[in-house]
């Protein structure tokens, strides 16, 4: 079976005490695609991403990863397939050293310590943080934290990478390095961001969310040159 597919079918979600946050979303993302999810603040981007990892479950409709619907029973399999990089690196880096943090996922997969170490080294090298393993995460700079957060997810060898605002708070060089890194991945990538320049450089396809609905889904170039659409979605 292929883990690389992500599909939403009439996905709806509302928090217990609030109006609907996601309304009837349907889309299908296939192997190796790089898809941007853009939208104004509060459009539902982060909520959608949390659905992909089963941190939140749909109130109606369904979301499928690979051949499986995301439910409580399939969480474990889904989370092996989907790696999520959270918006705030401090939420993602909770262990005392960078090494332990990157090793956290692989250890939870039950891998032997030798294999864990190899994965950590690999993942850190990929994001250009090979020199950091023994540092405590709170001593890192913003760019280093972001790189390490991505490494924590890469070390689990996910098929699908989900990133929430990856370029937020990065200096120009760290941002450029991040973009190069994202371009180099062959994973299916789903990136929620306000950084339209990053979208242009990394993503071939763009979903535009506005007040919980998909108002456009298509090739990035077409969408980003449609001024009227961007204005109405609160992106210009």
């Amino acid at each position: 079976m292929s883990h690389h597919l992500v599909e939403a079918r009439s996905l709806c979600f509302s928090f217990p005490d609030q109006a609907e946050v996601l309304k009837e979303l349907s889309f299908r993302i296939t192997h190796g695609e790089a898809v941007a999810v853009v939208g104004a603040n509060g459009a539902g981007k982060s909520t959608l991403l949390l659905q992909l990892t089963g941190c939140l479950l749909p109130t109606s409709g369904e979301i499928r990863v690979g051949d499986l619907p995301v439910t409580r029973k399939t969480l474990e399999v889904v989370r092996r397939a989907v790696g999520m990089v959270f918006q705030e690196a401090d939420d993602q880096l909770f262990m005392p050293t960078v090494f332990d943090d990157v090793a956290f996922g692989p250890r939870n997969l039950g891998l032997a310590e030798g294999e864990v170490a190899a994965r950590v080294t690999d993942a850190l090298a990929t994001v250009g943080a090979a020199h950091l393993p023994q540092r405590p995460p709170y001593r890192l700079s913003g760019g280093e934290k972001r790189a390490v957060s991505i490494a924590t997810v890469l070390a689990m060898h996910p098929d699908i990478l989900v990133l929430d605002e990856p370029s937020a708070n990065l200096d120009p060089r760290s941002r450029r390095q991040l973009i190069e890194l994202l371009q180099a991945f062959e994973h299916t990538r789903i990136i929620a961001t306000h950084d339209l320049d990053l979208v242009r450089q990394v993503c071939t396809r763009t979903l535009v969310l506005y007040q919980g609905r998909i108002v456009a889904d298509g090739e990035t170039d077409g969408i980003l040159s449609n001024e009227e659409l961007l204005l109405s979605a609160g992106l210009l």
């Binding site: 949390l50 989907v82 959270f86």
Partner: peptide, 9 residues
Amino acid sequence: QAMSCRGFD
């Protein structure tokens, strides 16, 4: 959430 995404049990 970040921990459960990485398989915390």
